[in-house]
Design a protein around this nucleic acid. Structure first.
Lengths: 216, 216
DNA sequence: TTGACAAGTGTTCTTTTGAACACTATATTT
DNA sequence: AAATATAGTGTTCAAAAGAACACTTGTCAA
């Protein structure tokens, strides 16, 4: 648990980080001193001791430039090998249009990728992201310009939120099923549920497993 | 304009990067030598000269650990080193409770991390995630159990969605300001706007820059 | 076979750099 | 009034770390 820094200590810590980011290696005590008009290395050392004591850096004894700046959030556990990266971080393609013929891997418009937490898509095979148009799901917290993360599958359970295709048109709705009757329910009182009568032109593209929203 | 490295040179370059990423500072010539069984600093120096000549690193003369590893332009699409990962993928800590005394780095409950797209938090210094309780922002598409991604800052502009602290209680609301009057507006007709009268106990913890939701 | 390059040894020298000491000064708190 | 934390000076010392030299070995291409 880190303790509060004085203004001076904060300035010095920032300088160390900035220096390191610019040069690839941290400054020496004398370089820090020069930056802040401290002529004695001992004065600088005292700042280092304070920063260590308050948990912001580590200093390796008798090592030149041996300053390790601890990241703001210490448990930022990174993957240990390059091979782990794919397991830790997953990119999902953002597609603008969903082809009617499943499988969905036949992507039409690939509009970049979005990074998602691997826990979100764990257990699902193929996932993609769709940008939401319209406000038909506003009561479910899905609004215009949101990206819904979709696990590709051609079935759904009652009450799932799904991406469905009707006549090649993709839409996000809640899936409602009772016996042989299927409806797509919007989450907005201004829209009517869509009853599926012609099951020939109706496909489920996938199930919504997450939502990601950026402000501006 | 980098030239091809020999296997040995590549190994050494990788070691330097790895060492730097782990410690925050590069190794000395002797540390490199020890790693590769090179007993003379001169042997290591020659490798440094070669790496400089081929454009992969810079070496500051007479400076300890003065090695700057130049970034790899060719491989923009994928992170090549562990150090690059932080720039490509960002984890944001999920905190359960926000301490009243800003800055927010004084994290109380660290409940894991969520991976976010780096584009989301680009340009912001310190970010964290909060799990939403209650339905006061439902009309803004923020519902219970969502995670809001917050950029830590102690100010806000009119109409921003903010995390505010009133008497140590954290709340997500829309920030409304006119002249000296400040209100926190919920996005739910069942709740009333909160007018800030006692500015002593009111703090802005940060601005909401994104929302992430899991369905499971 | 001559040269260029990669990779290395062992040693010496010099500069860089951190560590330590005694002492000063100014707040703030107890 | 005494204790504590912050922030510094000027100096000395020793360890850390880079630079340089002469020399060796092996590979590969012209």
């Amino acid at each position: 648990m880190k303790k509060e820094l004085t203004d001076r200590q904060q300035e010095i810590l920032s300088f160390i980080e900035q220096f390191r980011d610019e040069n690839g290696y941290p400054p020496t005590l004398r370089q820090i001193g020069k930056q802040f008009g401290i002529s004695s290395t001992f004065g600088v050392k005292r700042h280092m001791d304070a920063l260590v004591k308050k948990g912001h850096i580590l200093v390796e004894s008798n090592a030149s430039r041996g300053i390790t700046v601890l990241s703001n959030f210490e448990s930022l556990s990174l993957p240990q090998t390059l091979g782990d990266i794919e397991n830790y971080f997953k990119k999902v393609p953002i597609i603008g249009r969903v082809a009617a013929g499943v499988p969905i891997t036949a992507v039409e418009n690939h509009d970049g990728d979005v990074v998602v937490d691997p826990a979100m898509i764990k257990g699902y095979d193929t996932c993609f992201a769709l940008k939401v148009k319209g406000d038909s799901m506003i009561n479910a917290g899905i609004i215009e310009k949101d990206h819904v993360i979709v696990a590709a599958q051609n079935f759904a359970k009652h009450d799932d939120i799904v991406v469905a295709l009707i006549d090649d048109e993709a839409t996000v709705k809640r899936y409602w099923q009772k016996n042989n009757e299927i409806k797509l329910i919007p989450a907005n009182d201004n829209y009517q549920p869509i009853e599926i009568v012609n099951k020939e032109v109706f496909h489920i593209a996938g199930k919504v497993i997450g939502v990601i929203r950026w402000y501006n």
